[in-house]
């Protein structure tokens, strides 16, 4: 595993920001860490790169305890965050020159290629860049030393669709040789490259699994009953159920097949006239989970 945490926990002024998180990211994976605002994603990522010290548990990154990360380990880890503080009065060129001097493995050709791809003005000060350009500059700073692990905290936040595509293409260009942990609310953009998904709710990791397994077990189900709705005690795996006369809609988080679904609906609600299940995108799954967990933590 490139990332492995055990009961990782962080507390801020008696608020449990992260509680007993056991996260595993295999080598070569692109893992999307998703969850609502305040779910603990950023805190978890900061603990992984030892910007924050965990209160309990520990994290292992590239085989090294995160608390013991040495500069030589950081040559293989890139961290990019939307609210990273940069030396704003340096120009893009000066910033990259400064970074290149820190990394013996800096790939000047890749830097030039990304500069051209992102059309960044090398003489403009970082502080005078638009948010999108700033993210691109940071991305060049994160990719040009060809890290083994790339941790991206909301890299697409606040970017217009065009820039999002450009940033994503930059990230994707490295996806083959890099393990990526990315947190983002722009799930449509990252779905294409995501291999694993981890979902956090109020500091807890609710689940983590491959995107295939996740897509397979989530379905939006629409049921029309032969008579009025008479459902009793719906299963917990049916998220956000909505009843409108003889129509029941919900998201099934434990879908296996239409036949089994039909049998389950009949068992809980009686006669079914029509049942339709639709696969969900990562964005829709995330929305459903966030709605379902808005009230309390299961």
């Amino acid at each position: 595993m490139i990332i492995e945490t055990q009961n990782l926990a962080k507390n801020f002024w008696r608020h449990d920001a992260v509680q007993d998180v056991n996260l595993s990211v295999p080598e070569g994976a692109t893992c999307a860490l998703i969850g609502a605002n305040g779910a603990g994603k950023t805190t978890t990522m900061r603990m992984l790169v030892n910007v924050l010290a965990p209160d309990r548990g520990h994290a292992c990154v590239l085989g090294v305890d995160s608390r013991q990360l040495k500069p030589k380990d950081r040559l293989r880890i890139a961290f990019l965050s939307e609210n990273q503080e940069l030396p704003d009065r340096l120009s893009v060129g000066q910033y990259l020159e400064y970074l290149s001097a820190l990394y013996p493995n800096w790939d000047r050709a890749l830097e030039q290629q990304l500069m051209a791809q992102f059309e960044l003005p090398p003489t403009r000060a970082l502080g005078k860049l638009s948010h999108g350009m700033r993210m691109k500059a940071m991305l060049i700073g994160a990719l040009s030393f060809r890290p083994k692990l790339l941790i991206l905290d909301e890299p697409l936040s606040g970017l217009d669709p065009l820039v999002r595509d450009e940033v994503m293409s930059g990230i994707l260009s490295q996806a083959d040789e890099t393990t990526i942990l990315i947190s983002s609310h722009e799930l449509s953009e990252i779905e294409g490259c995501t291999t694993h998904v981890a979902f956090m709710v109020r500091g807890r990791l609710m689940f983590q699994e491959s995107i295939e397994a996740l897509s397979a077990r989530f379905r939006e189900v629409s049921v029309t009953f032969s008579q009025g709705d008479d459902c009793k005690a719906l299963p917990e795996t049916w998220l956000n159920p909505e009843v409108d006369g003889a129509l029941l809609r919900f998201v099934d988080s434990a879908y296996t097949s239409d036949d089994q679904q039909l049998a389950l609906v009949r068992k809980h609600c009686g006669g079914v006239r029509h049942l339709e299940s639709t696969p969900l995108s990562l964005r829709e799954i995330s929305k459903a989970l966030m709605r379902a967990t808005r009230g309390d933590v299961p």
Binding site: R46, V51, K70, K72, R74, A78, N83, L86
Partner: peptide, 15 residues
């Protein structure tokens, strides 16, 4: 800054 969670140097190979 040392008292920071956001400064660039924190995640760079700078002892």
């Amino acid at each position: 800054a040392v008292v920071s969670l956001k400064h660039d140097w924190l995640t760079r190979p700078v002892p």
